[in-house]
Design a binder for these strands. Structure first.
Length: 257
DNA sequence: ATGGTAGAGGATCTA
């Protein structure tokens, strides 16, 4: 089973590349972030013609998360706050695919350490943990995938000095991520690789990609039953090249179940 | 100190 996560930065703008990428990479499940789409315009039919069922939680202009699957998709849950989708930002959706609990998450950016958006980010991560605890046990097959907007360690940014005092690397954010991991999840990329310089996001500005100035903020967190059957993981840097790329590259895992 | 780019939506806001 091949599972991917990709912040597409507008599914409308990315659809030609997204479809080509699906055909080339042949993922069974994809967690999508930043669809920037209203519910009623999500391309369910076009994806169905490619063999994928889909669920989407979108609000238009900003945010928007989806899960698409060609190995079954059921029991989807919209959002994390249990107060109705119209009362929260479109940042999380979960479903069961082929016996695996799948979550597609788009963690708030936070903007700056002194911002209300930063406090919202920390609170949102707490709500996500509560939500996962309600849905799953650590002994279940679970994959939490998405754009976490947190670089887990200094080896996950191109220059730790350049990020001093910024969001994405602060102690409180990393602690919130750690609490998620402590529940019973493993960062699938770090299961295989321990070196620095592996990134999933590069600013569109200033040729950051070509200068290798990126951060690793997109990942698939997996429970122990998934970790034990991981075959490989990769960051698909090719998807960040060429015409009209997203600023994020997809991350893909293969598991033997 | 600021700008650089991309996307949505039609002026700025978000990242």
């Amino acid at each position: 089973m091949r599972v991917a996560t990709w912040n597409v930065n507008s599914l409308n703008a990315r659809m030609p590349r997204f479809v080509a990428w699906l055909k080339e990479v042949q993922p069974d499940v994809v967690c999508i972030q930043e669809t920037k789409m209203k519910q009623e315009v999500f391309p369910h039919l076009e994806l169905e013609m490619l063999g994928y069922e889909s669920v989407h939680f979108g609000q238009g202009q900003w945010n928007g998360v989806a899960i698409i699957s060609r190995v079954g998709l059921k029991d989807s849950v919209i959002g994390i706050e249990n107060k109705g989708p119209e009362f929260e930002e479109a940042r999380a959706i979960t479903a069961e695919c082929n016996g695996v609990g799948i979550a597609s998450v788009y963690v708030p950016n936070g903007r700056s350490l002194d911002s209300d958006h930063y406090r919202y980010k920390l609170g949102w991560l707490g709500s996500l943990k509560d939500h996962l605890e309600r849905l799953y046990k650590p002994t279940d097959k679970v994959i939490i995938a998405g754009d976490f907007n947190i670089a887990p360690g200094d080896i996950d940014v191109w220059s730790p000095q350049a990020f001093i005092g910024s969001t994405h690397v602060s102690e409180a954010e990393r602690q919130a991520l750690q609490e998620l991991l402590d529940w019973g999840l493993v960062d699938s990329l770090r299961h295989f690789y321990d070196q620095d310089g592996i990134f999933t996001w590069w600013d569109h500005r200033g040729g950051a990609f070509h200068k290798r100035q990126g951060m690793r903020i997109d990942y698939l967190l997996v429970s122990k039953p998934i970790e034990s059957c991981l075959d490989w993981v990769l960051v698909d840097r090719n998807a960040r090249k060429g015409e009209k790329p997203s600023d994020h590259a997809p991350v893909v895992i293969e598991i033997s179940i």
